[in-house]
Amino acid sequence: MIQRSRNLLLIVSIFTLHAAANDASNTPLDKPKSFSYFAIGSENINYKESINIGGAHFKTDTSATNSVLLSGARTFISREMSFSINAISTLFPNHVDETWRLTNTIVGPADLDGDGSADPGATQVYEPQIVQTNRFTYSRVSTQFLMHYHPDLWWSIDAGATYSLGTFKRFSFNYNDVLVCDTAQRDCSGNTVVEETFGEFSIQAGGSIHVPITQDFLWRFSALVGMPLFSRIENSLYPELDFDSTSGWHTEIISSLVYKISENVSFGVVYDFQYHYKDQQNQTSNQLAVYIPENERIAQRAGLVGSWSF
């Protein structure tokens, strides 16, 4: 059963792309201009799950590429304080293949000297075995609120919260090992659609820098780390169960380069890297152990972004 933990969380300290904080017309005492932004691009999600059940170790590692939309705004309250609201949404989730493997299948004792017999004291040899394949989609929406404190105009201390809602869908199952199907008590016809929804409210903190490379080019870099305060996972196979562990953490790094087209309009590119980790969870339904595997998610996003001041 597949988590898709909570994740999500997308931390988008996003694109304080072009603040007039770096405009040569502003003096250190001026309040920078507030601005809005809009970005469109592509995201690559690498998702890994692993779980131990009765000594058997199952693992999956798959990647999906989707189109993504980002938008938001930053408002300066004073020269020292500002806040931002950022949103992200998957536009068109793609279907990809996913493979589950039993990674500790014993194929025999070690024969290091090649004489056809097991060596004394040699360890057993393990070989991954495919036990299940299916199709997989991933989509996510999130809204983030951040406060920014500016000790100086070229850098800030950032802190805030994000609410995210993500969905995994798995379908077109093919079970290479009938025991996997029987143990999971699933429809072995392969026609089942399994949907897993995860909602999360998380907090994060970090900082960012804003460096004018030239009069017209601005480079921005930011980093955040966070943890969930509330998390809930629901799976369509077990609608009576809610998994609500808040164990785990996440981090994000964003870098952008924009060009000042006019006094109030900028255009550029952005790259966003996120890492999310979630511990394994388990509950019992009808005397059957149900697991949300330990999982990791790496998200990389790149796109074009435009911003305008007001």
Rank of each mutant, 00 (worst) to 15 (best):
Y277Q: 15
Y37F: 09
I85P: 00
V180T: 10
E263T: 04
K169L: 03
E200A: 11
I106K: 12
P109S: 13
N174L: 10
R135G: 10
Y259W: 05
Y238S: 11
V258L: 01
A19Y: 08
W100E: 11
V194S: 07
S164G: 14
Y149E: 08
W219Q: 10
H57E: 12
L112M: 12
V178I: 15
L229P: 06
L229R: 09
H250A: 15
K48I: 15
L69G: 02
L8W: 06
G199N: 07
T143C: 05
V270N: 07
E200M: 08
V193R: 03
S208L: 08
I292S: 12
S84T: 13
A205P: 07
T162V: 13
Q185R: 14
I77F: 05
P120W: 02
T143F: 10
L153G: 10
R6Q: 10
Q287P: 04
M1E: 13
S236R: 01
G41E: 00
W219A: 12
S36A: 13
F171A: 11
G248L: 09
N104K: 04
S63M: 02
V68K: 08
A20Q: 12
Y277R: 14
E252A: 15
I261F: 03
R135D: 14
Y47S: 10
H250V: 13
V290L: 07
V131G: 01
V12R: 05
I11K: 14
P93S: 01
V258G: 01
S245M: 10
D111K: 00
A289Y: 07
G206I: 00
D244N: 15
Q185F: 09
H148S: 15
S13F: 08
I254V: 12
M227D: 12
N46E: 04
H148N: 15
T62V: 12
R301K: 10
D242E: 15
F168M: 09
L8P: 06
E49A: 08
H18F: 13
G121V: 11
E240H: 05
L257T: 03
G206F: 04
V125I: 15
N174Q: 14
N134Y: 11
M147W: 10
F145N: 06
A24Q: 12
G116M: 03
D61G: 05
G72A: 03
Y175H: 05
T197G: 02
N286W: 08
Q129P: 00
Q274F: 04
I292E: 15
S89K: 14
N46G: 12
S307R: 00
S255R: 01
L304T: 00
L288H: 13
R74T: 15
D279V: 13
V107P: 01
S172C: 09
G206V: 00
G116W: 01
A24I: 13
L229G: 08
G41P: 01
V68N: 09
S139H: 03
E80P: 05
F267W: 02
T192W: 08
E127T: 11
N94Y: 06
E234C: 04
F83P: 00
S262R: 00
A73E: 06
N46Q: 12
F136E: 03
T197Y: 03
G190H: 06
F221E: 05
N286L: 11
D23R: 04
R135C: 09
E43T: 13
F92G: 10
I292C: 06
E294F: 06
Q215T: 11
E43K: 01
S67W: 07
G160N: 04
Y175N: 09
D119K: 07
V270T: 08
S172W: 07
